[in-house]
Simulated scan of single mutants.
Amino acid sequence: MNLPVFDDGAPLLRASGVTRYYGTRIGCTDVSFELWPGEVLAVVGESGSGKTTLLNCLSTRLVPTSGVVEYRMRDGAMRDLFQLNEAERRLLMRTDWGFVHQNPADGLRMTVSAGANVGERLMAVGARNYGAIRGEAESWLDKVEIDTGRIDDDPRGFSGGMRQRLQIARNLVTGPRLIFMDEPTGGLDVSVQARLLDLLRQLVGEFGLSAVVVTHDLAVARLLSHRMIVMRGGNVIETGLTDQVLDDPRAPYTQLLVSSILQV
Score class of each variant (00 low, 15 high):
Gln102Gly: 10
Leu257Gln: 10
Leu241Glu: 06
Val230Gly: 03
Phe158Asn: 06
Arg227Asn: 14
Leu197Tyr: 01
Ser32Gly: 14
Leu54Arg: 01
Asp154Arg: 01
Gln202Met: 14
Pro176His: 03
Glu136Thr: 12
Phe158Tyr: 13
Val18Arg: 01
Lys143Pro: 00
Val144Gln: 06
Met162Gln: 12
Cys57Leu: 10
Leu54Met: 02
Arg170Thr: 03
Arg250Glu: 14
Ile26Asp: 10
Gly240Leu: 05
Gln102Leu: 11
Gly50His: 00
Leu223Gly: 00
Gln255Tyr: 03
His216Phe: 05
Ala77His: 13
Ile146Ala: 04
Arg201Asp: 11
Leu224Tyr: 05
Gly135Asp: 06
Leu41Asn: 00
Val44Ala: 10
Val68Arg: 12
Gly175Val: 08
Leu199His: 04
Val214Glu: 07
Gly119Ser: 02
Val144His: 02
Glu86Met: 05
Gly38Val: 02
Trp36Thr: 10
Met73Arg: 12
Asp198Glu: 13
Ser47Gly: 03
Ala114Lys: 06
Leu203Asp: 00
Ile229Thr: 13
Glu145Lys: 11
Arg89Leu: 12
Gly160Glu: 02
Arg222Glu: 07
Ile133Asn: 07
Asp7Ser: 15
Gly205Met: 04
Leu41Ile: 00
Cys28Thr: 10
Gly161Ile: 03
Glu46Ser: 15
Ala114Phe: 07
Ala169Met: 05
Val40Ser: 05
Gln244His: 14
Gly175Trp: 09
Leu108Gln: 03
Phe180Asp: 05
Pro104Met: 08
Ile146Cys: 05
Gln83Lys: 15
Gly187Ser: 09
Pro4Thr: 01
Ser259Glu: 12
Leu122Arg: 09
Val190Cys: 09
Gly187Val: 10
Thr148Pro: 15
Asn56Arg: 15
Asp8Lys: 11
Gln83Ser: 15
Trp97Tyr: 04
Leu218Tyr: 05
Met231Val: 12
Gly160Thr: 01
Trp140Ser: 07
Pro37Ser: 08
Gly186Tyr: 07
Ala169Leu: 02
Thr239Cys: 09
Asn85Arg: 13
Glu39Cys: 01
Leu200Cys: 03
Asp30Arg: 13
Val258Thr: 11
Ser59Gln: 00
Ala211Leu: 09
Ala221Lys: 00
Val214Ser: 09
Val63His: 15
Glu39Gly: 00
Gly135Ser: 10
Thr111Leu: 11
Asp153Lys: 01
Arg25Ser: 13
Val69Trp: 04
Leu257Ala: 04
Ser113Met: 06
Asp7Cys: 12
Met1Val: 00
Thr148Val: 14
Asp247Trp: 04
Gly23Met: 09
Arg156Glu: 13
Val43Trp: 05
Leu81Ala: 09
Arg74Pro: 06
Asp217Trp: 02
Thr185Pro: 03
Trp140Gly: 04
Ala15Ile: 05
Phe6Cys: 00
Ile237Ala: 09
Asp30Ser: 12
Leu262Arg: 12
Gln202Glu: 15
Asp152Val: 08
Val220His: 00
Gln164Lys: 11
